[in-house]
């Protein structure tokens, strides 16, 4: 297995699950921002392409003890991604400052090995060519290329916004590698009216997310598998934190 790089900047999210109502605005904002094609019938969730998916969590108890929570799942941008080393053609890599796992569509041959490796189901395949209702393709943003059929894609943390923020900093004479908190946020972060998502540089004490990930309520999905995700979740509810990883019956959840 290859070794993984450490980066000075580490873009990360802290998603407060106690603040997510599951409204789906983030999913829509993501599709519009990243030129993901709409699907007339998206009821087969195993074949509907959306980089960000909101899962429904339940505490498993019967009425009236039942509780529900919603968990938005972008790409975890793992520190030790299981998908990167398996790609036979280096179409995906984690080699840029910030630690975002890249996916280069013109390089991808569509073998789907990375999808098999990802336990978060964060990777999606273009089963067909993307199509938009007539004229709707005019609303595509110029920021993200449209993917043809046969390639794998995934959440990029709206990487183009990172590039735009750096360019803006350059033009304004600021250091592109020292962005302020909020200079670069993802489309879902921006769209969420509840502010459930906080985005920033986990390594930078000036960024809010830096403190948030240290909260005793913070956890990551499937931490023990060693993927080292850059997406953190927070919940004051123990049962929610317990759903973040597989626990044997006698094991205690942290926090």
């Amino acid at each position: 297995m290859s070794s993984f790089k450490e980066f000075k900047i580490k873009w990360g999210m802290a998603i407060d699950l106690d603040k997510c109502t599951g409204c789906g605005a983030c999913m829509v904002a993501c599709q519009a921002e990243n030129n993901i094609a709409p699907q007339p019938d998206a009821s087969n969730k195993l074949k509907s392409l959306n980089w960000l998916v909101v899962y429904e969590l339940t505490n498993g108890k019967s009425f009236p003890e039942h509780e529900v929570a919603y968990l938005p799942r972008p790409c975890m941008q793992c520190g030790k991604p299981s998908c990167v080393s398996v790609c036979p053609v280096i179409a995906t890599d984690k080699n840029e400052e910030g630690g975002i796992v890249s996916q280069v569509y013109p390089r991808c041959i569509g073998c789907r090995y990375c999808m098999a490796s990802c336990p978060y189901h964060a990777r999606y395949f273009n089963w067909f060519d993307p199509t938009w209702p007539e004229g709707m393709d005019k609303t595509l943003t110029p920021d993200v290329s449209v993917r043809p059929r046969g390639v794998v894609e995934k959440c990029s943390f709206c990487h183009h916004r990172f590039m735009q923020a750096k360019d803006k900093a350059r033009v304004e004479g600021r250091d592109p590698n020292a962005l302020n908190d909020g200079d670069y946020i993802t489309s879902c972060t921006e769209a969420c009216p509840n502010g459930a998502i906080v985005f920033g540089d986990v390594n930078n004490p000036a960024h809010k997310v830096h403190e948030l990930v240290k909260s005793k309520y913070a956890f990551r999905l499937l931490e023990r598998l060693g993927t080292d995700p850059q997406v953190y979740y927070l919940s004051r509810r123990e049962w929610v934190r317990r759903l973040g990883d597989n626990y044997l019956e006698n094991e205690k959840v942290k926090g």
Binding site: M1, S85, I90, I109, C111, V151
Partner: peptide, 25 residues
């Protein structure tokens, strides 16, 4: 089975030596 058979030759040209699949190819 590969989504982009016309690019399948990338497996040789842009081989990732860390991938078991490369060894297989």
């Amino acid at each position: 089975d590969v989504g982009q058979p016309l690019r399948a030759w990338f497996g040789y040209w842009h081989a990732n030596v860390h991938s078991m699949l490369t060894e297989v190819i």
